[in-house]
């Protein structure tokens, strides 16, 4: 059986050998750190295995020569393994994507900038850009990250997504993360007296307080997923072809209709979110089903119209 672990072990051996060969021997502690070995014993086990392999004939002069001393390893008679393997496309993309994402988010050290530049020069073909990241970065990401690292309480002005209501909240921040196109702050909200996740582009003021909080024992939420819940309101509607992009941007179920229109089913935890979207879509949306959302939509319409009647 070929397992992932076999592949991982081979990948590591095929990287360690070139390193030792090109440096004319290497320090065992450095190898352990550099290549993520548990301890020297694990490294030595790999080296002993290498010692039994080599070229056909498999006699003393054909096998790879490995010398393991107390704190140093030497490899000889293995010039064919003097270069590390090329990166697979997935590996190249994974590294480029990770580096470029942090650079775009203003989270990058100068070393990361130069590393990505050097890497791109060997893995990106000469015709030009092949991969591109558009990561919007709200102004407060850096400050919030620092506050989370130093565990300072932050006071934020926050305009709720569902409500459009602005509140001031003191937050014990646990993490700052990017997911599905948005940056988030998660932490304990003293106003709500519970753990909450805030979209950073909805934070309009930020003060880092001197107070330092004690990190709680409970597991911290460091990610956010849209999880359909039994409490979700469901709304179904038909979208004209010009509004098909909605299906690309929201977690919805889509059923194709004739004439390139689509029938969409959307689950939302707050009916106002769906009502606002439907209102914005105007005449491109028809046949709305879902009593709760329709009621909220009608209420929203009359609130807006009332506002215009008042101001003129």
């Amino acid at each position: 059986m070929t397992s992932d672990r076999t592949a991982q072990r081979l990948t590591r051996i095929l990287a360690v050998l070139p390193w030792i060969i090109s440096h004319d021997g290497a320090d065992t502690d450095d190898l352990v750190d550099r290549f993520g070995y548990k301890d020297t014993t694990e490294l030595v086990k790999d080296m002993h295995l290498v010692f039994t392999t080599g070229l056909p004939g498999y006699g003393p002069g054909d096998l790879i020569d490995v010398d393991v001393f107390d704190d140093e390893v030497y490899v000889d008679a293995a010039d064919y393994f003097s270069r590390p393997l090329r990166l697979t496309p997935a590996e190249a993309l994974g590294l480029l994507a990770s580096g470029m994402t942090l650079i775009q988010s203003d989270q990058a050290s100068p070393a990361l900038h130069s590393a990505v530049e050097k890497l791109a020069s060997v893995v990106v073909p000469p015709e030009g850009e092949t991969v591109r990241f558009e990561v919007p970065t709200p102004a407060y990401v850096g400050t919030l990250k620092d506050a989370v690292a130093s565990r300072n309480v932050v006071r934020i002005g926050y305009v709720g997504i569902a409500t459009n209501e602005r509140t001031e909240r003191d937050i014990e921040g646990w993490s700052v993360f990017f997911n599905l196109g948005n940056w988030y702050l998660s932490g304990f909200c003293r106003l709500a007296e519970g753990s909450r996740v805030f979209r950073i582009d909805r934070i309009d003021t930020l003060i880092v307080l001197d107070e330092v909080y004690v990190i709680p024992e409970v597991p911290l939420q460091t990610t956010i997923d849209y999880r359909p819940s039994e409490d979700d309101q469901h709304v179904r509607f038909t979208l004209a072809p010009s509004a098909r992009w909605v299906a690309e941007y929201y977690p919805v179920d889509v059923e194709p209709l004739d004439d390139d229109a689509i029938r969409v089913t959307m689950g939302v935890s707050d009916p106002l979110v769906a009502a606002r979207l439907l209102l914005q879509l105007g005449e491109t949306v028809t046949d709305i089903q879902g009593d709760e959302v329709i009621a909220v939509l009608e209420n929203l319409r009359s609130r807006i119209v009332a506002r215009y009647t008042l101001t003129k």
Partner: peptide, 24 residues
Amino acid sequence: TELGAIFKLGGAARTTESGTVYAD
């Protein structure tokens, strides 16, 4: 991502970073 790519590039000592920022 797998560590293999970093190994191929010469490896790097792992630090225990607080992991306060991450992107998916």
